[in-house]
Amino acid sequence: MPRYESLAVGDELPSQTFPVNRTDLVRYAGAAGDFNPIHWNERFAVQVGLPNVIAHGMFTMAQAVRVVTDWVGDPGAVVEYGVRFTKPVVVPDDGVGASIEVFGKIAALLEDNKVRVDLTAMSAGQKVLGRAIAVVRVP
């Protein structure tokens, strides 16, 4: 677990890549109660103008913050988190699926042993989350 005293603006968190396949989306739909067919039915997704089935925005958001929670070692240390959805994560049914690559950097040292972490989330070479910011309390 990082110590506040040893952190500096610009420090990078360990990056991670998260695979996403259709099974993940079905499991997430069941847990979240979001059964919108754009997340599991390719024919429907294409009919409404999407390139293919897309991951739930909140699923993508949850994957991205894992970089922070894994780094700090305590999901409860995240005191604030927000993103803007910029592009969908397209998940083809090709046996491979998609991936979400996430990078984090300390953007500010705040009061009360908190830091602001800016996240970058990419899929298929495109930024899928904008203004992805987490405020984290560190010891």
Rank of each mutant, 00 (worst) to 15 (best):
M1T: 12
G73K: 09
V48K: 08
A124E: 11
D24Q: 07
R66Q: 14
L13A: 09
F59I: 04
F35H: 06
V78D: 09
V96M: 01
D34F: 04
G57A: 13
I54L: 02
V68L: 07
R131D: 15
S99M: 03
T69W: 04
G76N: 10
M1F: 11
P37S: 15
V128R: 07
E42D: 11
W71M: 01
V20H: 02
G10P: 02
G30V: 00
A62T: 06
M1D: 11
Y81P: 11
P14C: 09
I106D: 05
M58C: 09
V102T: 08
W40D: 10
T86W: 08
I100T: 03
V67D: 12
D24F: 04
V65C: 02
A64K: 10
H56W: 00
A98F: 06
D11V: 01
V89A: 03
P2E: 11
V53R: 09
F103W: 13
V96Y: 00
A108C: 05
V65E: 04
A108V: 03
V26S: 08
V90F: 06
R27P: 05
P88W: 02
V9C: 02
Q16A: 12
Y28L: 03
A108T: 05
S15C: 12
G49W: 01
R137P: 07
P139E: 14
D93R: 07
R137L: 05
N113L: 04
